[in-house]
Structures are given as C-alpha cells and as structure tokens.
C-alpha cells in the first residue's frame, strides 16, 4: 500500500501546478513534446492511464549496447550458403521462429534470396554469374522512414529512438496493413498457432527451442527485431555474431557488420567508407538501415 501511494503521489505531483516549477524550468530547454515524453517516461498519457498510476520505474541496464541509429552492413561477397544458413538458424532458434512447411504460412525473420528477388530493380541477365548464385541475406531493413510504422493503426509496430523498428506483439491486432506497406516482404503473419498447446498448457508436438524468448500467439505480425533483447544485454545481434565467427574461421572479412550509423568511428561507418554499398529499393524513400556491399 505504502509503495503504491508514494508512486501515486509522484504522478499526482507531476500533474499539479505547485510541483511544476522545476519541470517548467526544464521545459524551456526542450520542446513541449519532448518534455511531456520525458515526464511520462516514454509512455503516452493513455498508456499511463492504462497502468492506473503506475509509473514505469525502469532503467536501462548498464551493460546495454546503445546507439543513435543502429545499422547493419551485409557484405554479400563474403557470404556463402553455410554462413547464411547459420545466420538463419541461430536467429530462428533464439527467437522461437516456428518452422512451418506450408510456404503460405511461413514465418521468416532472416533468409537468403537470390539477387533477382532481393534487388529486383537492379537485375539484368548479364550480371556476374557469381553474384547470381550468392545468398543475399534479407531481413527487416529497419527503415529510417518506415512505411510499416506509418500505417500501423495501433503503434504496435514502432520505431525506437535508436532506429530499430520493433513489433509490440502484445498490441498487434493482426490487420496486416504493415505487410501490405512493407516493400521488402520482411514481415510474417502468424496464420496458425505457431506453438500449439494442449488444454493443460503443455506444448503439443515440438517445443520452442529457446525458453528465454517468448513465442507468439496466432494472429500477430512478426519480423526481425535487430536482436533488441540481446542489445539490452550487451550482445550484438545473433546473426552478426554467428556470421563473424564463421567468417573468422574461414578467414574472410566479416560478412555482417553491425553498429551505430551516427558514430563516425563505428564499424559500420568504417566499412561503408571503404566499400561501395547500396540499399534495397532506395527509390521508395524508406531509407533502409541495412546496407549491401555487392
């Protein structure tokens, strides 16, 4: 009771004029929306209302990796089937992406495409035969100007401040507008129950491989999350880690590089400086944060 009341008073305090002097002074330094955002701890007023006086008292953990704008570079020339498959496997494993045989109901976070599909606009018959065979790893581009976030009617898919486009699977109503909006086909929908459970809650058939990451319910859209849960623990995305390990073993340049695009010293910036990189469908203006070196 006591704890709760204190919290309540805190919230109440924010909203009363008397306690507004200090925040008001702060407010002069930032625009009103930023100020409000800060007061609400990143929550909208309606969300705060839904929590009925509970104000988030969370913190970022100290070991978390942070950035202003996360980005990934895929060096396609360094990829091979094995690396691509390893990336796909580790990603799908740690995120409990179900393996569904029916291609219509398939769920994919990261997968290999042929050049002509990954970059349909840039394809011609006389292209380097080697390139035609290479597995283009594709995934959510975490667009800077993401059409999916624009169309989502509930903000279930949203762009984090660090540029990661995330899915809030608690909130998704399953309208699939984002799938129509995504120009990269990066989004998958749970057409069926991905991890069926019996009446008693036990899993029917296969169990999800990772007990640490939740599964999804039917009827929500999902996609690559740039391993937000790993970043929070100070780890780089699983695919990058797997690819880099394998490349090291094979003595290649890292096929996947991950880092802060706004930080001039970051690995991604260094790679982009030294290689010619393109992005998928740049003409659509979505400004992907995944770059390809071909």
């Amino acid at each position: 009771m006591g704890v709760n009341r204190r919290k309540f008073l805190k919230i109440a305090g924010i909203s009363t004029l008397g306690a507004a002097a200090v925040p008001a002074a702060n407010a002069l330094a930032m625009n009103p929306i930023e100020w409000l955002d800060k007061q609400l701890g990143g929550f909208t007023p309606s969300e705060i209302l839904l929590h009925m006086g509970h104000k988030p008292t969370g913190l970022k953990s100290r070991e978390a990796l942070t950035a202003k704008r996360w980005a990934m570079v895929v060096n396609v020339r360094q990829l091979d089937e094995e690396i691509a498959e390893a990336c796909r496997e580790i990603c799908h494993k740690i995120h409990n992406v179900p393996h569904i045989k029916n291609p219509k109901h398939e769920i994919k976070w990261i997968w290999a495409e042929h050049y002509e599909h990954a970059l349909p606009g840039q394809y011609h018959e006389h292209i380097d035969e080697n390139l035609k065979k290479l597995p283009f790893l594709v995934m959510c581009n975490h667009c800077f100007n993401a059409p999916c976030c624009r169309v989502c009617p509930t903000k279930a898919t949203f762009k984090r401040k660090d540029g990661i486009v995330l899915m809030d699977m608690h909130r998704c109503i399953g309208c699939r507008f984002c799938m129509a909006a995504c120009p990269f086909g990066a989004r998958s929908f749970n057409w069926i129950v991905p991890w069926p459970r019996a009446e008693d809650g036990k899993f029917e058939g296969k169990e999800p491989p990772s007990p640490e990451f939740p599964t999804r319910s039917k009827g929500v859209v999902e996609k690559c999350n740039f391993c937000a849960e790993r970043l929070a623990k100070g780890q780089i995305p699983a695919c990058v880690e797997a690819a880099q390990e394998l490349c090291k073993k094979k003595g290649r340049e890292p096929a996947l590089v991950f880092g802060d695009l706004e930080d001039p010293d970051s690995e991604v910036r260094q790679v982009l400086r030294s290689h010619y990189a393109i992005r998928r469908k740049p003409e659509l203006g979505s400004k992907p944060n995944v770059y390809y070196i071909v």
Binding site: T44, S46, E47, L50, R150, V151, C152, P153, T154, K155, A156, R171, C172, I173, G174, C175, R176, F177, F189, N190, S217, K218, G219, V220, V221
Partner: peptide, 18 residues
C-alpha cells in the same frame, strides 16, 4: 483481424498517421 479481441486498441492507441 488476426486478433479481433484487441480491436479496441485502435481507439485506445489512436494513431492519426494510420
């Protein structure tokens, strides 16, 4: 809707850009 039970979210989390 994949999740009709959450249809109210459209009102609870109004999103004018959608």
């Amino acid at each position: 809707l994949g999740n009709p039970v959450r249809a109210i979210n459209v009102i609870l989390h109004p999103t004018p850009n959608s």
